[in-house]
Simulated scan of single mutants.
Amino acid sequence: MTNRPATDVDAYLQQSSMIRLARQFEQLATGAAQVPRQPVLTRIRNRIADADVLEYHDRLVPKAGPLFSHFLASIPGILEEMSRVGVALSRLSRPRAESSGRPCLLYEIDAFDGSNARTLAAFSGGAVKTLTCSPNKANEEHFDRFADPALSRFVPMSFLKLDQDVLRTLVDDEDFHGGFDYIYETAAFQFYGKDRDFQIEQGCRMLRDDGLVFFLEKLNHTDRLEYERRERVKDEQHKAHYFTLEEIEWKRQQMLLRMYEGEVLLDELVSSIGRHFSHCYLLWNSTNFYEFVASNDGQRIEEFVRLLGPPLIEDQFVFEQPMLRKVLERAHG
Rank of each mutant, 00 (worst) to 15 (best):
R325Q: 14
P103G: 04
F319D: 02
R224L: 10
L13S: 11
H57S: 08
F292R: 00
A294P: 05
N46M: 09
I200V: 12
F123N: 01
L266Q: 12
G193Y: 01
L328N: 00
G31S: 09
H276Q: 11
R330E: 10
L328H: 01
R252W: 10
T30K: 14
L245H: 10
G125K: 06
A88V: 06
C280A: 15
Q164R: 14
E263C: 14
T287F: 00
F198D: 00
G309N: 06
R208V: 02
L324W: 01
G31I: 03
D144M: 13
I200E: 05
G86S: 04
I78F: 11
E320H: 10
S124K: 05
A6W: 11
K234I: 00
N136T: 15
L105A: 08
S278V: 06
I273C: 03
G101D: 07
T132W: 09
E141V: 15
D223R: 08
Q27S: 12
V293N: 07
S93G: 05
K218G: 12
E228R: 12
Q14K: 15
I44P: 05
S278H: 11
F180G: 04
D50S: 04
V270P: 02
L167I: 11
L21K: 13
F292L: 15
R94Q: 14
D173H: 05
E98C: 01
A88K: 07
E185R: 01
P149L: 09
K239G: 07
A294I: 09
T119H: 04
I183C: 01
D267M: 01
C104Q: 15
E98F: 01
A97I: 05
Q202N: 05
I19M: 09
A240N: 04
A49M: 06
S93M: 05
M157H: 12
L105V: 08
D209H: 06
L216F: 12
G178D: 11
L54E: 07
V40Y: 00
P62Y: 07
L160G: 10
H332W: 12
M18K: 13
S100D: 12
Y182C: 02
F215T: 05
T130N: 02
F289W: 13
E247G: 06
F112R: 14
G86N: 04
G298P: 02
V327P: 00
D175G: 00
E302C: 09
L72T: 08
I313C: 08
L245R: 15
L307A: 08
A147S: 13
Q199H: 11
A187I: 10
